[in-house]
């Protein structure tokens, strides 16, 4: 043992850590009492840490966030309930006009990984729910209310626009350990022959955990 280690050990012996230190200082083996055999345990009281280890069972219940029911984006005056959308043969189901739809086949907002909310930029007649999505800026707030009454705040990191043929699939959908939220709508030029916008606008947000 080095001189510093001895000093530390001596100090601990004289301080509030007396009980802990007695099992370790100078013994040459701080496994100490923990290494006692079953027979010896009759003579030496079992240490509480070993008792705790005997009783320990690893956690087996996940703690998922409740499903989202509403979203508010104050910076663009958006506030309303969420519907749900899914997937069909790897194609996202298109939400109804006027709906903001959570992609329920994916992650719930607040759980680890990418959650997504889809909305139309416009209808055939005029602006729709995500008409101003492209105006969002880093730092803007997105609040998702859940079915159990919790409000989760996400903060916009960036807004990107991509050709639909070059949709950043991995950026949007690849799993991860951090809760993320992606708001998706259309943008760019409208191809009248195809009846479709050429681009998608995606607002990327992360959970404000503070």
């Amino acid at each position: 043992m080095t001189s510093t280690a001895r000093r530390l050990c001596t100090a601990a012996t004289g301080a509030a850590l007396l009980a802990l230190a007695l099992t370790s200082c100078g013994s040459g083996n701080d496994a100490g009492a923990g290494a006692a055999t079953a027979d010896e345990s009759n003579a030496i009281p079992a240490p509480s840490g070993l008792d705790a280890a005997r009783e320990y069972r690893s956690v087996r219940e996940a703690d998922p966030v409740a499903d989202p029911v509403a979203v508010a984006i104050p910076a663009i005056d958006v506030d309303g309930p969420l519907t749900r959308t899914g997937i069909d043969d790897r194609e996202l189901e298109v939400p109804d006009f006027g709906d903001m739809s959570w992609f329920e086949s994916g992650t719930a907002p607040g759980d680890p990984g990418p959650a997504a909310i889809l909305g139309h930029v416009d209808t055939r007649k005029g602006p729709d729910v995500f008409y101003r999505l492209h105006e969002l800026e880093p730092g803007d707030s997105v609040v998702v209310d859940t079915a159990d009454g919790e409000s989760l705040e996400f903060v916009i990191d960036r807004v990107e626009q991509h050709d639909k043929d070059e949709f950043p699939t991995e950026n949007v959908w690849l799993p991860g350990s951090e809760p993320r939220l992606h708001l998706i709508t259309c943008g760019g030029e409208f191809d009248r022959s195809a009846g479709s916008y050429r681009d998608n606008v995606i607002a990327f947000a992360t959970l404000n955990s503070s």
Partner: peptide
């Protein structure tokens, strides 16, 4: 995930504001 993730973009516009 390459075979599981949604493919391509999303059709979320009607063209009424163009």
């Amino acid at each position: 995930m390459g075979g599981e993730m949604p493919a391509g973009g999303v059709e979320t516009g009607g063209g009424g504001t163009t």
